[in-house]
Amino acid sequence: MRYRTLGATGTVVSTQCLGTMTFGNETDEEGSFAQLDRFVERGGTFVDTADVYSAGVSEEIVGRWLRARPGARDSLVIATKGRFAMGPGGNDAGLSRVHLTRALEASLRRLGVEAVDLYQAHAWDPLTPLPETLRFFDDAVRAGKIRYAGVSNFTGWQLQKAALLTAHLGLTPIVTLQPQYNLLARDIEFELTDVCHNEGIGILPWSPLGGGWLTGKYRRDTPPTGATRLGENPERGVEAYAGRNADERTWRIVDAVAEVADKRGTSMAAVALAWLADRPAVTSVILGARTVEQLDDNLAAADLRLDAEETRLLDEASAPRVADYPYGAAGVQQRARELPAG
Results as ranks from 00 to 15, higher is better:
305 R>T: 10
271 V>P: 05
248 E>C: 09
299 L>I: 12
252 R>M: 11
313 L>F: 05
278 D>S: 11
295 L>K: 02
259 E>N: 14
267 S>T: 10
314 L>G: 06
316 E>A: 11
277 A>S: 08
300 A>Y: 01
272 A>I: 00
299 L>P: 02
313 L>M: 11
291 T>Q: 10
262 D>C: 13
269 A>N: 06
285 V>L: 12
274 A>P: 02
291 T>P: 07
287 L>N: 04
290 R>Q: 07
322 V>H: 13
303 D>T: 09
246 A>I: 05
314 L>M: 11
265 G>N: 11
305 R>E: 10
319 A>G: 12
269 A>F: 00
247 D>M: 10
256 A>M: 01
262 D>R: 15
279 R>I: 04
248 E>F: 09
303 D>V: 04
287 L>H: 02
295 L>I: 07
302 A>C: 07
245 N>G: 04
284 S>Q: 12
291 T>M: 06
308 A>I: 10
282 V>A: 04
304 L>W: 03
303 D>H: 11
303 D>R: 13
277 A>L: 02
266 T>K: 09
313 L>V: 12
310 E>W: 05
318 S>N: 12
262 D>T: 12
303 D>L: 10
310 E>H: 10
294 Q>M: 04
294 Q>R: 03
298 N>K: 01
281 A>C: 15
288 G>A: 08
246 A>N: 14
267 S>L: 08
317 A>P: 01
264 R>P: 01
306 L>Y: 07
324 D>G: 14
281 A>G: 15
256 A>I: 07
254 V>P: 00
